[in-house]
Computed example of a mutant assay.
Amino acid sequence: MTKDSDLATALDAPKSALDADEQRFVEQIRDKGWFHTGVTADDEGPGFSYTTGFWVNQGFPEILVFALRQETAHAVLQGIYDDIAAGNPPPVGAVTDNIFKNAPALLLPIAKSHYADYLGWNRWFYGNDSFPCLQLFWPDKAGLLPGQPGADEELHALQPVLIESADDTH
């Protein structure tokens, strides 16, 4: 994937058109390359974190991960961003040991039908849903990922599966 420097985003908006939160958001993407949005757990589901800026600045899909402590999620996502920027992007659709130390991880495309529920700031930043996003899956204590035979069932509750399926028409 390549960086799309002609991509229209909130980076192109005049500062006067943005409120204080939007300006802070855009400035972080300008300064650091990406922004980490953290959403706390509630009665509707587990907490999650996602990136904004990976796509516009590195040509790599945004990433969403469930149920990691915010500090842990930020460190993991920063590590992925740094790897992408160094020319070593993680594989998509294949288990890898390069994201977590001594544990497998898996990145799979999120169905666009889930964008409205989980990716509010990204939808604002890009102005639509025409950006790719991946879900990062992490393993249980036995090293098994959700969906693998023998994986801890509680892991499924912590990591709702938002990936595209054969039935997804979006």
Rank of each mutant, 00 (worst) to 15 (best):
N98V: 11
E153R: 15
V26L: 05
N128W: 03
E154K: 12
F60N: 02
N88P: 01
K112Y: 00
Y50F: 10
A111S: 15
Y115T: 05
H114N: 14
Q58I: 13
D42M: 12
G143V: 04
G59I: 05
D19F: 09
R24S: 14
G59N: 04
F25T: 11
L155N: 03
E153K: 15
E154P: 07
G93T: 06
E154F: 14
G87F: 05
K101G: 08
F35C: 11
V56L: 12
Q159Y: 08
L64R: 06
G127L: 04
P46D: 04
W124L: 11
D6A: 13
G79Q: 07
S16P: 01
E22Y: 12
G79L: 00
P109T: 09
Q58G: 02
L155T: 05
V76D: 01
P146W: 07
L145C: 02
A151E: 10
L64H: 01
H170T: 15
Y115E: 09
H170F: 14
T52E: 11
E44S: 15
N57H: 15
E44A: 06
F100H: 02
G53N: 02
N57Q: 13
F100R: 09
K112V: 10
A103F: 09
H36T: 00
I80K: 02
Q23P: 10
A73T: 10
T96I: 05
E22M: 12
T2W: 00
N122K: 01
G127E: 03
A116V: 09
G147I: 04
F100Y: 15
F131T: 05
Q23F: 06
G79I: 08
Q70F: 12
H36C: 04
K141F: 09
P61R: 07
P104F: 12
L134F: 04
D4L: 08
L68K: 05
G93S: 09
